[in-house]
Each structure stands twice: as C-alpha cells, then as structure tokens.
Design a protein around this nucleic acid. Structure first.
Length: 256
DNA sequence: ATGGTAGCCTTGCTA
C-alpha cells in the first residue's frame, strides 16, 4: 500500500499537477493539505475520473485537507478532537483497507509572539493526546501531512537562521519530540538517517534553485504500520514544474 | 529597512 502526502497550496490551481501525479506515481492513498476551498467546490468529479474517491474537509480561502484513495474511504474524524471551538479545516481521519490514515495540516504559528503560536502549541498537544488514543487501538495508522515542524538541524538549510521561527523554535521541537516519543516512526528519517532532504522550498528568493528548503512534511507511522514499512521517498519532480506548489509529495510503501 | 512570491478573492491575510 503506497501512502503519500502533499501540500498543494490550492487544489483548484494545482489540479493538473495532482492528476498528473496520481497517474504517474499511482499512490493508493494521497493526503492533501491547503486545498483552500469549501467542499462544494472541491474537484471531486475530476478526481473520481482519475480513479480516486475523496474525503474532504474544506474552508473558504484557507486551510483545507482531503484524503484521496482508490479503495473505499470510511471517514472517522473531521476535526482534531480536544478543542470544540476550533473550526479550522486541518484534520481528516479515515480507514482505508484496514489502515487508519490522517491528513494533517498543523498551524504555521508565526509570529511566535502572537496567539497564533499558542494555537500551534495547543494543536500539537491535542494531536499528542489523540495519538495516545489511537495507539491504544493497536491498529496500523499513518499521520500524513504538513506538520509545519522542522524536527532537527538536519532538516533545514540554515538552522541558526530559523531558531526564532515557529517551525523550528525549541518549544515546537519539544512538543513534536513528545509526539514522536509516544512510539511513532518518522518514516523518511528511519530509512534515510543521514539525508539532507527537503519537502518545501519558499517561492521567494530563488529558494528552489538554491536548494534552500525545509523538511516539514512527514509520514508518522504507528508501530503496527512501521513493522510493514518498506520504502519512503520525497518526489521532487512536481516542485520543478511550471506554477508548482511550494511543497512536493512524500510517499511510503507499506507491505500488504 | 525593505521587499521579495503565491493564492484567495480582497485591496489585507496567510503562508
């Protein structure tokens, strides 16, 4: 089973790239983030024509997540539990062929002096509490998405320049580490322990051409999923296209 | 110190 994640920065603008990637990469499951549209305007028909069902949690102009899959999708959650007033479309969780998959879009959190950063830290706490509950099910699961977290200095082109940024500052990394230490496996890092590989390059300043990137899109596997992990790769080819997303897909293969 | 890019659908906000 091939499971992928991609922050597309608008599904409407990026639909041709997404359809092309579904055709060539042929994942069984693709988690999308930053779809940036309400559910009624999600291009489900075009995606269905490509052979994929979709589960969508949308919002006007901002955020938005989805799970695309070849097999039937049983939706389990449409919001991350733990904060009733949180209306932002940042989480959808489903079961597909016996594997739980969540499409996750963590808050960016910048600037760190504002309520946005508190929201990010609370969101990480909520994700940790929910993951504790998921682990008790002993089902294989994958948290797939844009975590807006740079886990270590290896995962950023210029660690010193990012210490005050919400994606890398110490409280963010501490909370991400607490999440991982529940017993999750960072699929890419576990198979590529020494790689300096990125999933995001800013649109500004020629970041892509200069390879000034960040590794912030992650596939976090439960023990039962990690036991089945075979491959995990970042596919840089969509980032090199015309009118790209600023993120590129990451995928893993787990045995059947 | 500023502005540099992109998307939404506005003339600002978010990333």
């Amino acid at each position: 089973m091939k499971i992928a994640s991609w922050n597309v920065n608008s599904i409407k603008t990026r639909l041709p790239h997404v359809l092309a990637w579904l055709d060539t990469a042929a994942p069984d499951v693709l988690c999308l983030q930053e779809t940036k549209t309400v559910e009624e305007n999600f291009p489900a028909l075009e995606i269905e024509a490509a052979g994929y069902k979709s589960a969508v949690v949308g919002q006007k102009a901002y955020n938005g997540v989805a799970i695309l899959a070849k097999a039937p999708i049983e939706v389990l959650e449409r919001r991350l539990p733990g904060e009733k007033a949180d209306e932002q479309a940042r989480y959808v969780e489903a079961r597909i062929e016996g594997v739980r998959v969540a499409s996750v879009y963590l808050p960016n959190g910048n600037p760190v002096t504002t309520e946005k950063f508190d929201y990010k830290l609370r969101w990480l706490d909520r994700l940790t509490r929910h993951t504790e509950a998921l682990l008790k099910t002993e089902e294989p699961f994958v948290l797939a998405g844009d975590f807006n977290v740079i886990p270590t200095a290896m995962d950023v082109h210029d660690p010193k320049g990012w210490t005050e940024d919400a994606l890398y500052t110490l409280p963010t990394r501490e909370k991400f580490r607490a999440l991982i230490h529940l017993g999750l496996t960072d699929a890419f890092r576990s198979l590529h322990p020494a790689a300096h590989a990125f999933t995001f390059w800013d649109y500004q300043g020629g970041a892509w051409q200069r390879d000034l990137g960040l590794r912030i899109d992650h596939l976090l596997l439960s023990p039962q999923a990690a036991d089945r992990l075979e491959t995990c790769e970042i596919d840089k080819s969509p980032r090199a296209k015309e009118k790209p997303s600023d993120h590129t897909p990451i995928w893993c293969q787990i045995s059947a």
